[in-house]
Amino acid sequence: MKIIVDRAKCTGLGICESLAPDAFEVNDDGELVLKTETVPPGTLSDVEEAIAGCPTEALRLEP
């Protein structure tokens, strides 16, 4: 599955990074960096939790 970020909505709060650190990172400039464009093996539930927890709804998954 592919991770999609809506850069216009993302505010770099870092909730996704705290819930799924293998997939997301907020850099020193406060910008979200995807560590990978696809869900890392064994982390789907963490990534789904991060997407659900995004307060700006900037994240989604595509098959």
Rank of each mutant, 00 (worst) to 15 (best):
M1F: 02
M1G: 09
I3V: 15
I3D: 12
I3G: 12
I3T: 13
I4K: 08
I4T: 05
V5F: 04
V5H: 06
D6K: 00
D6I: 06
A8I: 01
A8L: 06
A8D: 04
K9C: 05
K9D: 05
K9Y: 11
T11P: 00
T11R: 15
G12F: 07
G12K: 07
G12P: 06
G12M: 09
L13R: 10
G14R: 10
G14N: 13
G14E: 14
G14H: 11
I15E: 10
I15M: 10
C16L: 02
C16E: 00
C16M: 03
C16P: 03
E17W: 05
E17D: 07
E17F: 04
S18W: 09
S18E: 14
L19A: 06
L19V: 04
A20Y: 12
A20K: 05
A20T: 09
P21S: 15
P21Y: 13
P21D: 14
P21M: 13
D22E: 15
D22T: 09
D22K: 13
A23R: 03
A23S: 15
F24P: 02
F24E: 01
E25Y: 05
E25W: 03
E25P: 01
V26H: 12
V26W: 11
V26A: 07
V26G: 10
V26T: 11
V26M: 08
V26F: 10
N27R: 12
N27K: 11
N27P: 04
N27S: 06
D28Y: 01
D28R: 10
D29T: 00
D29N: 06
D29I: 00
G30A: 07
G30D: 08
G30F: 03
G30E: 07
E31P: 02
E31M: 14
L32V: 15
V33I: 15
V33Y: 02
V33G: 00
V33Q: 08
V33S: 03
V33F: 04
V33R: 09
K35P: 01
T36L: 10
T36N: 14
T36I: 05
T36Y: 07
E37N: 14
E37M: 09
E37I: 06
T38V: 15
T38L: 08
T38Y: 14
T38C: 05
V39W: 07
V39R: 11
V39C: 06
P40V: 12
P40N: 11
P41M: 07
G42T: 04
G42C: 06
G42V: 05
T43H: 14
T43P: 02
T43A: 13
T43S: 14
L44M: 14
L44I: 13
L44C: 02
L44K: 11
S45P: 01
S45W: 05
S45N: 12
D46I: 03
D46Q: 13
D46C: 08
V47P: 09
E48S: 11
E48M: 13
E48T: 09
E49W: 03
E49F: 02
E49D: 14
E49P: 00
E49S: 14
E49H: 05
A50I: 13
I51W: 06
I51C: 01
I51M: 02
A52S: 13
A52V: 10
C54D: 04
C54W: 07
C54V: 07
E57F: 13
A58H: 13
L59F: 08
L59K: 07
L59A: 10
L59T: 10
L59G: 08
R60D: 03
R60P: 00
R60A: 12
L61Q: 02
E62T: 04
E62K: 03
P63Y: 06
